[in-house]
Write a protein that binds this DNA or RNA. Structure first.
Lengths: 87, 87
DNA sequence: CACCATTTGTTCGTATGTATG
DNA sequence: GCATACATACGAACAAATGGT
């Protein structure tokens, strides 16, 4: 998956989409850390600001949470029916 | 109990949690000495500074007190219901 | 007294990561 | 992309207090 700059959709929305899908698929499981901003800069060829904008969307959706100095983490989803009571 | 570096919670908060629980359970009774910084370094695999930060939290909460050259001690808790005022 | 081992206290630096401009 | 600020974690060194010999 990558960003298409010719797409109608803004890059930050495309990225939000990509990440949302990875989370939905469990590729990044709840409680796990997302790649760092620098990593995503490299991976998607986007500006840090653009990436932060994407993350803001996901944060707003309650999908992820940030832990200053540690990273961005996938929150346990309410409609996630695996391991509700622990692992 | 151990520290999970992939957790959203910062290690120093995890450690503070662990120690708080040990104290609450009476595993480290009031007046007793906590393990030394070096001991905790070994036990939890954390840097001495990180451990100090945890202890600073507990000190701030009034759970423990430090005695330079001697160690860290569990303070008698105000809400400790033994012989508070046994008439 | 001096010496040493142990333990806490303090300060310097380095690296990573988030937040903001 | 960069600069700044802040939070977190690790490393190393030195100081000061304590206790035992």
């Amino acid at each position: 998956m990558s960003i298409n700059h010719d797409d109608v959709r803004a890059p930050y929305l495309q990225l939000a989409d990509i990440l949302r899908e990875r989370i939905a698929k469990g590729e990044i499981a709840p409680g796990k850390r997302l790649p760092s901003l620098m990593d995503m800069e490299r991976e998607f060829g986007l500006n840090q600001k653009t990436i932060r904008k994407s993350l803001a969307v996901l944060k707003d959706e309650g999908l992820i949470e940030s832990s200053p100095g540690r990273g961005m983490f996938v929150k346990a989803q309410p409609d996630d029916d695996r391991a509700e009571d622990g692992d």
